[in-house]
Amino acid sequence: MDGSPTRQRLLTLTGVDKVFGGEVVALRGLDLDVFEGDFISLLGPSGCGKSTALRLIAGLSHPTSGRIAWEAGEQSLSVVFQEPTLMPWATVAQNVWLPMRLKGQGFAAVRGEIMDALKLVGLEKFQNAYPRELSGGMKMRVSIARAMVTHPKLILMDEPFAALDEITRFKLNNDLLAMQAKLGCTVIFVTHSVFESVFLSDRIVVMAARPGRVIEELPVTAPYPRTEEFRTSAEYAAWCRGASDALNRAIGAA
């Protein structure tokens, strides 16, 4: 999608710097416009500030300078980390309940919403299972369900599939796009993978390190839904080459 005037601007980062300890420059001059319904991938080498940018957007840290502005007032958001971070003593349903529990909502009152979220990730039959009984991919599905149960406007995802095998990763990529289409949420997704960024995104923001900054922004104009046919197409391969070239320029600029 292209930031057209028919879609509302959700979030704007303007000239954002982040410095740690007075000397480590994690981000410098980061500018980013986020529109409703965007799927944006932050692509770049380790140390380029991708995860730092997510933490700033989430409010888990604050910029040293610059501005992060929600265009229509601060909106609801959820974060999915690289590790599922599930509570081992709680069932799948209880783990998904957590953000609502923190708001004082009882389990019985929101059970329908919890089950809807589990159905969205294909885990409704595992509602009473414990994390130790689940595969890595299933644990990540629980984490995604927990992020989506409150129907946030924005979901921030920090390399959520990096530790998974390729088959599971491809399946979760497919499912994530289907979930985004159903919920109509905006996603900002951190990845090191050119192939993943092209398959998922309508915009790829390529970053360089030392200091972390945006080098290029690449639109991916292939229509959704994206299927396995797209994944094996010449069009997909061409976009992957373009993203790979941009990533190599970012690495060379570090």
Rank of each mutant, 00 (worst) to 15 (best):
S76D: 15
W70G: 04
T91P: 07
G44S: 04
W97V: 12
L43E: 03
K50H: 10
P88C: 10
T64F: 08
D38G: 10
A26D: 01
G22H: 08
F20K: 05
L86Y: 08
V24R: 08
G73M: 07
E74M: 09
W97E: 15
L13C: 12
V79G: 04
V34M: 06
E36I: 03
V19S: 03
G73K: 07
V24L: 13
L77N: 05
A53L: 14
P88I: 11
S76R: 14
F20R: 11
L30E: 04
G15E: 11
P45G: 08
G22S: 09
A58Y: 07
A93N: 12
E71K: 12
G59T: 11
R55I: 05
T85D: 09
H62E: 15
V24H: 10
N95T: 13
L56Q: 03
L10S: 11
Q94Y: 11
G44C: 04
S76A: 14
T64M: 10
E36Q: 13
H62G: 08
G29A: 13
K50W: 06
H62P: 00
G73I: 08
N95Q: 11
S41K: 02
R9I: 11
H62A: 15
L30K: 06
G21R: 06
T12S: 15
T12E: 12
Q75E: 15
W97N: 10
F39L: 14
W97I: 11
W70N: 04
V19R: 02
L77W: 03
I57Q: 03
S65M: 04
I57K: 01
E71M: 14
L11C: 09
L42C: 01
P88W: 08
V96R: 00
L10K: 05
A69E: 13
K50N: 06
V34F: 04
L86C: 14
P63R: 02
L60G: 05
A90E: 09
H62S: 15
L13F: 08
D38W: 05
D31E: 14
E23S: 14
G21T: 11
G21N: 03
G49C: 02
P63G: 07
S61R: 09
L43Q: 00
P63C: 02
L54G: 00
I57S: 03
T91A: 01
V79I: 15
K50A: 04
T64N: 09
G66Y: 02
L13M: 15
G22P: 04
R28F: 07
W89A: 09
T64S: 15
